[in-house]
Computed example of a mutant assay.
Amino acid sequence: MEHNVETFVEKLDRTLTDEQRELLLFLYKNLHVDELSEEEQSFFVEYFFNSETLRNMAVFAIALVEIIHEIEGNIPAIELEERLANSEEQRLYYERKWNDAKLNDLKHQTTKQGNVFHVPFAKYKKEPGPIIICLEQTKGMAKYTEICKSMVLPLFVTAHREHRDLYIVPYNNLVHGHYRFEKGRLNLSYFTDFIECDVASEAAIIPVLQFVEGLLQKKQQCTDADIIIFTEGVPIDGRRLVEPSVKTMMQEMIHKYHIDVSVIAMQENNFKEQYFWFADKVFFAEDAIF
């Protein structure tokens, strides 16, 4: 991997400082840059030199990887043991329902030719659910942009290792497109667009949750999806999140796709706990940022 980095740096007639080498090697490892074509790797290395944002993201990400266990231990989670127990019971209930439904499908789709039964087992196979990052883009989030984006980098490793799609969905009061990295593999066009995206406005959470539901509906066979929401913690439509119709929508989506929802809020004193009742875990990023 280090040989690859040095090779492409030389081709571009560049020199690396020790810090730049460390950052570039980190990105190569976490983003699996060495799996790209030579032309794409040259582009990535050139982009690295030209993008201060990407270099800053790498600095933050390296620091976060080193302290992530400490963060998880020290940052409080807004979650009750009773609710955890209920969630597990509900998860098992819906998993049994899912299995029963799929077994029913197998029964009806099985055909017989002579004494040979053709059973479509491939349709029964579960696919690993995607990791979906919902990244709030507001004026208040502007100062946290690089740290939030840096937290996404290590998730490429998880997605790649577990053969899961990774989606990044920037949002404010609307969803302005999304980036899909199939099985955690790097797409340079999407990746550079993600680094440079900036659509500051007020943030509404319901549109992005509805958008996520639409993504999951296209993956009928998936299970155990993960949603990670980066937010200031005060969406303009927060009061609607406790309305019966919205609660029903969220509960059905969580149960159907076995979703685990994590929220990373920027500051504890700005966070409205009641609006994020559907989260399994809430982390406050202050210790990582300051």
Rank of each mutant, 00 (worst) to 15 (best):
residue 1 M to E: 15
residue 2 E to H: 02
residue 4 N to Y: 14
residue 6 E to C: 10
residue 9 V to L: 10
residue 11 K to R: 13
residue 14 R to G: 03
residue 17 T to I: 11
residue 27 L to E: 04
residue 27 L to C: 10
residue 29 K to G: 07
residue 30 N to C: 12
residue 36 L to G: 04
residue 37 S to D: 12
residue 38 E to W: 15
residue 40 E to H: 14
residue 41 Q to T: 12
residue 42 S to T: 14
residue 45 V to Q: 15
residue 50 N to P: 06
residue 54 L to W: 01
residue 57 M to F: 02
residue 65 V to C: 13
residue 75 I to E: 12
residue 76 P to D: 02
residue 85 A to H: 08
residue 86 N to A: 09
residue 90 Q to E: 12
residue 90 Q to T: 13
residue 92 L to A: 12
residue 100 D to E: 14
residue 101 A to M: 11
residue 102 K to M: 11
residue 102 K to D: 08
residue 108 H to Q: 13
residue 118 H to I: 10
residue 128 P to I: 03
residue 129 G to Y: 03
residue 129 G to H: 00
residue 134 C to R: 04
residue 135 L to G: 01
residue 136 E to W: 05
residue 138 T to F: 08
residue 141 M to C: 04
residue 143 K to F: 00
residue 151 M to H: 02
residue 152 V to Q: 10
residue 153 L to C: 10
residue 162 E to H: 13
residue 171 Y to G: 01
residue 173 N to F: 14
residue 175 V to Q: 04
residue 177 G to I: 07
residue 189 S to C: 10
residue 191 F to G: 02
residue 191 F to A: 02
residue 193 D to H: 08
residue 216 L to M: 02
residue 219 K to N: 07
residue 221 Q to S: 11
residue 226 D to M: 10
residue 231 T to G: 03
residue 232 E to P: 00
residue 234 V to E: 06
residue 234 V to F: 05
residue 239 R to Q: 09
residue 239 R to I: 11
residue 241 L to I: 08
residue 245 S to H: 11
residue 245 S to Y: 15
residue 248 T to M: 08
residue 249 M to A: 10
residue 249 M to Y: 15
residue 253 M to I: 03
residue 255 H to Q: 10
residue 256 K to W: 06
residue 258 H to S: 06
residue 260 D to K: 12
residue 261 V to K: 02
residue 263 V to Q: 15
residue 266 M to P: 00
residue 267 Q to F: 08
residue 268 E to Y: 02
residue 271 F to K: 06
residue 271 F to Y: 13
residue 281 K to T: 11
residue 281 K to D: 09
residue 282 V to I: 10
residue 282 V to G: 11
residue 285 A to E: 05
